[in-house]
Design a protein around this nucleic acid. Structure first.
Length: 471
RNA sequence: GUCCCCAUCGUCUAGCCUGGCCUAGGACAUUGCCCUUUCAAGGCAGUAACACGGGUUCAAAUCCCGUUGGGGACACCA
């Protein structure tokens, strides 16, 4: 069997959509598993909607989720000669003809047909005109077979049969000389040696239009696979009104690329009961047979859970690295530069169990930068009171005589004081928590002290006593 | 309207191809309990589904037909 060659072929008309990422992912996974080739092709033949910014967004998105391509990115606008020469070849072999119908006329006829309840197909009126010297604004149409059936043995849907009577003669070269999608795709897929065309199932009905073109051109027909769509909570096609759909928006919301990949693959594919997969496991275990045939509803809750799992289990240094840009955006650039990567990783370990996103993590981590704590007003009011001041002072006095920080020793010392005072843990823990972090919620106190270090712990305790004495 | 695809808990899904082991499993969400210095995390338990109707069969979530419902496509967009 020859080498697998697959492609991802987005059109650059906006940001990279998460549905697009999933399509790319399935192709990429299959290529990596089969030691095949993954090609990136930009379908920009619609010059009015394509933009360079979109191309950049696509490349950026692909890189962020770690989908590397082996060939490309190719741009269709750089391959115009290929489409034109193959179109002329079809004309010369009698598989295509010039059509002089005006776009407005076609539109009007389509509307008329629809109004009568007929299917809005091209009526084929130029088919037998045998125009050989077309006017400059003529379009070239493919002469589609009108009898028989086109059968697709789909990788995902299985056998799908279309009557050829339902496909009309589609335009392959517009009057401006640009190829249309259904034609340029065929030429590229054939010329690039694509063995498996895997795309969204919104393309399923395009397939019986494309197969006859492969055949007319004398090319081998690739295998096809049509992935089910991603839906919003209301079961309609996922769009902006369901929330963020741009892959980069998820980076900005604090999602880890590994979590996005895992979630997106699991949306429509499964391997028994397993939910979490490493990239390598995905490559090893992927199979078309377990790709779901039906559309799937995008569930932000499950994605959030999965992101939390990745935050908890990924190497802390890696999470810290992803966190840094968000920290800097949040105005902590100087503070971040002042600390070591090792300490940052330690910080991640401190809070990773409570942050479901990196954005949440920024908030959890903020109290540990800088010398002093910033007290939340309500927290200070409740716990740093004149009654707690002497208690805090006693703890401070005991800690001050300890030469260096030791979790065990400091915790013992703390508990001993609680015992001697005959108070509950919380009665001392909460004021200390507020003194150290400025907040009423934080990780375990002694883990906090460890991250803060002896000096800052004592400093903040002192400030806490001061604040408590004030009220 | 025509054509195509699809149908298991609220959601993602296992099971379906190769009927019986399904009293339908897992995960997210949700509810309760436990743990606990706070907030989380974690542990345990609970609620919750084979769309409907006909067949075939000793036996159907699984095979067949129909109905209903959902989605997609019908451009000189991709």
């Amino acid at each position: 069997m020859s080498q697998v060659r697959v492609r991802f072929a987005p059109s650059p008309t906006g940001f990279l959509h998460i549905g697009g990422v999933r399509t790319a992912l399935f192709n990429w996974l299959f290529a990596r598993q089969q030691q095949g080739v993954f090609i990136l092709r930009i379908e920009d033949t619609d010059q009015s909607r394509s933009t360079d910014e979109s191309i950049q967004a696509i490349l950026q998105g692909m890189k962020w989720v770690g989908l590397d391509w082996d060939e490309g990115p190719f741009r269709q606008t750089e391959r115009m000669d290929l489409y034109r020469s193959h179109a002329m070849k079809l004309f010369e072999t009698g598989h295509a003809y010039w059509c002089v119908c005006k776009a407005e006329e076609l539109e009007a006829r389509r509307k008329e047909a629809e109004a009568k309840g007929l299917s809005p197909r091209y009526d084929g009126r130029c088919r037998n005109l045998r125009i050989t010297n077309p006017p400059g604004d003529a379009a070239l149409r493919f002469k589609a077979p009108q009898e028989g059936q086109t059968v697709i043995d789909d990788l995902i849907k299985g056998k799908v049969v279309f009557d050829n009577t339902v496909v009309d003669d589609l335009i392959i070269l517009r009057s401006n000389g640009y190829p249309t999608y259904n034609f340029s795709v065929v030429v590229d897929d054939a010329l690039m040696g694509i063995t498996h065309v895997v795309r969204g199932d919104d393309h399923l009905t395009n397939t019986p239009r494309q197969i006859p073109i492969f055949e007319a051109l004398g090319f081998a027909v690739p295998r096809f696979g049509h992935l089910p769509m991603i839906l919003g909570a209301d079961k309609t096609r996922l769009s902006k009104r369901h929330g963020a759909t741009s892959i980069m928006a998820y980076r900005d919301m604090g999602y880890l690329p590994e979590a996005m990949v895992n979630y997106l693959v699991r949306l429509g594919w499964s391997h028994g009961d397993q939910e979490l997969f490493t990239r390598q496991e995905l490559i090893d275990k992927f199979s078309w047979g377990h790709v779901q045939k039906s559309a799937a509803v995008f569930n932000p809750d499950k994605l959030l859970w999965m992101n939390a799992e990745y935050i908890k289990t990924s190497p802390p240094a890696q999470v810290a690295q992803a966190l840094v840009p968000l920290l800097e955006q949040d105005g902590l650039k100087q503070e971040v530069e002042a600390v070591s990567g090792k300490w940052l990783a330690q910080l991640v370990v401190l809070v990773k169990e409570r942050a479901k996103t990196l954005v949440e993590m920024v908030d959890w981590v903020r109290p540990y930068f800088g010398q002093g704590a910033t007290f939340e007003v309500e927290a200070a009011k409740k716990f740093l009171t004149p009654t707690t001041a002497p208690l805090l002072q006693k703890l401070l006095t005991r800690f001050e005589v300890l030469p260096s920080f030791s979790k065990q020793v400091w915790e013992d010392s703390f508990k001993k004081l609680v015992e001697e005072e005959g108070i509950k843990m919380g009665a001392l823990a909460q004021p200390v928590r507020v003194a150290l972090t400025g907040r009423t919620a934080s990780p375990g106190l002694f883990e906090v002290m460890e991250v803060l270090g002896r000096d800052r712990t004592l400093f903040r305790l002192r400030k806490g006593v001061e604040r408590a004495s004030l009220q």
